[in-house]
Design a protein around this nucleic acid. Structure first.
Length: 748
DNA sequence: CTAGGGTTAG
């Protein structure tokens, strides 16, 4: 025996008198085992081992065993192996096990349990093979450990091998072991095999029923799981708490499908619960946040704090989700402080949620700082940050982070791709679009429905409508947002848009979202079918949102229809939109029909409410660089050259039939009372683009507001006289100018 | 050594 492996600490604590009064019972239990002599099982060291609760205590008992010459006793050897395994030190267990010369079967069985439960299942399986090679007969419970390990690790092949061994060793009639087989197949997602094993059971008791019920529930067969709960009662077996707990998620799942995400049932149960723990609160708070009811989520969160329940990271993440959705920055900041008080500064998922909250509340700088300061970043962290930049229109930062992520050897996934694609859609640069499409294909993410949808949307926004259409037609699985992207991208073609909208509902049973309705109103309205658009709004099965009336108002502005415009505006302003652009839109509508008193009225209203309009700017993509221009700006180094060129260009298109329209020009970009029209940013950007690209090259423009009527008209003529394709992506859509015609058909 | 089933979470 090698003594160096054993600690030399003396047994100072745990005097004999501290032995529990049940020591005689322990002695009795020990004596019942294989013929152990009384001086061994009655020895205090044996009783101490039975009472041992930690590795520390074990190390204190061992010297006592050695001093008393008991180390060679099988009872002690087996117990030591068992305890070392239990406390996680397989190395020490092996050091006891291996040197033993005459290893009995029990010792092997103990070691096997240790490997299967406290090491990896593969160690357990190899030890089983060795045990058989050493000529040791397995016992039925050896298989239960191995089956459990195979199930937990989804090792179908190994699980089947163990199942075979079980049969070969004649244990097919053992309910306990066979229940493990049922469980193993269920955990390996082979629910049919699990069921086959279940029907072959020698008898079906409560535990085996619970096993198959949980199996169905975990594999997503909610209905089947519930069915089996009734069936077990036919066999006179009453469901116990474990049955209920196993089937509850299945019930909730069914409920969700039936009630279409309704939380009310869950809430009734929650309100009736006598004892609510953090988990029950968390589920409810997150449930509301997830379903979009931020208000109720946050009310419940406050209630939880009032009830004196200490929130966990999960609670805070759920509440942050609600803040992000509702743009509630101040409450989000409160949650941030709370998380710090709870010591969650370095919690990665929580920091990810904070980044998401700050990004959605337009505090992208704070989000960026949090991200930068993270000691450790997961893929989710990168995805959250990239999405944040994309949603805040920070295309360059999004692309830079995408590059950095790859430099850090973190593989992008479908979430990364969707974010980066939407960032590129924002800039509408076709070259970048094609580049990312290539990246998507090379990273094997092109089959993902969300990725494909965002590609369709991206190409549509870049003006490459034929590529978008091709991708759309190739998609076999279409998601709700795919339809949206396509309806939006085809918006010039009213008939097709309407058709997509109806087959989406009828053939594919996809419920339209607010964006779909918005797209339809826009489509009908811009084409001048204002009555139809208004009827469509009135017939909507859901309460119309800001975007619906905004689209209607925009259409009325184009068609100078004050009657519908005022109706839309009235409903719109009741919804308190934050965007001042709608007031400008209404004022422009009045201006277009010379109702100047009304124009003044709106202007006063805006001043009183402190509404500021967004300054217009346009940018032009020159391949390697992007140049931005503000309305009437002259700070560009080539400013003089640009204005001179623009002057000759305007003369040239006038020769081709262009007439400047002062009324149309006084549009969203200008103050409503401003009569001297400065040069719109879009014209500056186009001029700069023409000056700095070789003849024939397509010009890509991006504008933060809607294109005004005069610029639109001018661009058509420019495309004709300069023989250039010009693609303008404005706030709402793309315009593809070619040979004096725009792809939007003059509806926008 | 001395056996089998369950729950919450981005």
């Amino acid at each position: 025996m090698s003594s160096q492996l054993l600690p030399v600490a003396s047994l100072s604590t745990t005097p004999r008198s501290s032995l529990s009064p049940s020591s005689s019972r322990i002695q009795h239990t020990l004596a019942q085992r294989t013929h152990i002599p009384a001086h061994v099982y009655k020895h205090p060291a044996a009783i101490l081992l039975e009472l041992c609760t930690s590795m520390e205590e074990l190390h204190q008992i061992i010297p006592l065993i050695i001093k008393n010459g008991l180390y060679e006793e099988h009872l002690f050897q087996t117990k030591l192996v068992s305890l070392f395994c239990k406390y996680g030190s397989l190395t020490e267990a092996t050091r006891v096990f291996e040197p033993i010369e005459n290893k009995n079967d029990a010792l092997y069985h103990t070691m096997l349990k240790g490997y299967a439960q406290n090491s990896s299942i593969f160690d357990g399986l190899s030890f089983y093979c060795r045990m058989i090679e050493d000529g040791v007969q397995p016992v039925v419970y050896n298989f239960t450990y191995l089956l459990k390990g195979c199930g937990e690790n989804c090792l179908v092949k190994n699980g089947k091998q163990v199942h075979a061994q079980l049969i070969l060793n004649g244990h097919e009639g053992d309910v306990y072991a066979m229940t493990c087989v049922v469980n193993m197949y269920a955990k390996c997602r082979l629910i049919d095999d699990a069921h086959k094993a279940f029907v072959r059971l020698p008898e079906r008791d409560l535990v085996s029923w619970n096993t198959i019920i949980a199996g169905y529930a975990q594999n997503g067969f909610a209905g089947r799981a519930i069915e089996l709960v009734s069936q077990m009662q036919v066999e006179q077996l009453k469901p116990d708490p474990i049955t209920i707990i196993s089937v509850l998620p299945a019930v909730a799942l069914l409920d969700m499908y039936l009630k279409c995400g309704s939380l009310s049932t869950a809430r009734v149960i929650f309100d009736k619960m006598s004892v609510r723990n953090v988990v029950s609160w968390n589920i409810m708070i997150d449930g509301y946040a997830e379903s979009g009811d931020s208000m109720e989520s946050l009310i419940l969160f406050q209630k939880m704090l009032d009830d004196g329940i200490k929130p966990t990271g999960v609670t805070i993440m759920a509440a942050l989700h609600a803040c992000a959705d509702s743009g509630d920055l101040s409450r989000g900041q409160f949650l941030h402080r709370l998380a710090n008080e709870l010591g969650l500064q370095n919690d990665i998922p929580l920091t990810n949620s904070l980044i998401s909250m700050y990004s959605k509340c337009k505090q992208i700088e704070i989000a960026g700082k949090l991200f930068k300061n993270m000691k450790e970043k997961t893929r989710v962290s990168w995805n959250t940050m990239i999405l944040g930049y994309a949603q805040n229109g920070r295309v360059i930062e999004a692309l830079n982070h995408f590059r950095d992520m790859k430099l850090e050897n973190i593989e992008p996934d479908s979430f990364t791709m969707v974010s980066i694609i939407s960032a590129i859609s924002e800039s509408s640069i076709l070259l970048q679009a094609k580049w990312i499409h290539g990246v998507v294909i090379r990273s094997f993410l092109v089959r993902n429905v969300f990725v494909k949808t965002s590609l369709v949307d991206m190409y549509a926004k870049c003006g490459a409508i034929s590529i978008a259409r091709k991708l759309f037609d190739l998609m076999d699985e279409k998601h709700i947002t795919t339809w949206n992207a396509m309806i939006d991208g085809h918006s010039r073609f009213i008939k097709e848009g309407v058709r997509y909208f109806s087959i989406m509902k009828e053939k594919y049973a996809v419920d339209p979202t607010m964006d779909h309705y918005g797209a339809m109103v826009d489509l009908l309205g811009r084409s001048g079918r204002l009555q139809e658009a208004w009827d469509f709004i009135l017939k909507m099965p859901v309460e119309p949102g800001v975007n619906i009336f905004g689209a209607m108002l925009g259409a009325c502005r184009i068609h100078k229809n004050v009657k519908f415009g005022e109706m839309a505006a009235e409903r719109l302003f009741k919804l308190n939109p934050t965007d001042g652009g709608y007031y400008v839109l209404l004022a422009n509508l009045y201006a277009s029909v010379s109702m100047w008193d009304k124009v003044n009225e709106i202007r006063t209203k805006m001043e009183r409410k402190g509404i500021v309009k967004t300054p217009g700017f346009s940018s032009v993509d020159l391949g390697n660089e992007v140049h931005s221009f503000y309305s009437g700006s002259s700070w560009h180094s080539d400013s003089k050259k640009i204005y001179d060129f623009l002057e000759t260009l305007i003369e040239k298109i006038k020769g081709a039939g262009y007439v400047a329209d002062m009324d149309l020009m006084r549009d969203v970009e200008d103050d409503v009372e401003e009569h001297m029209v400065s040069v719109h940013s879009e014209k500056l950007a186009i001029a700069y683009g023409l000056l700095n690209t070789r003849p024939g090259k397509t010009i890509h423009i991006r504008k933060n507001l809607r294109v005004c009527g005069d610029c639109h008209n001018a661009t058509k003529f420019i495309s004709l006289v300069e023989k250039r394709e010009i693609i303008v992506r404005d706030l709402h859509r793309f315009h593809h100018f070619k040979d004096g015609i725009c792809s939007c058909g003059d509806y926008w």
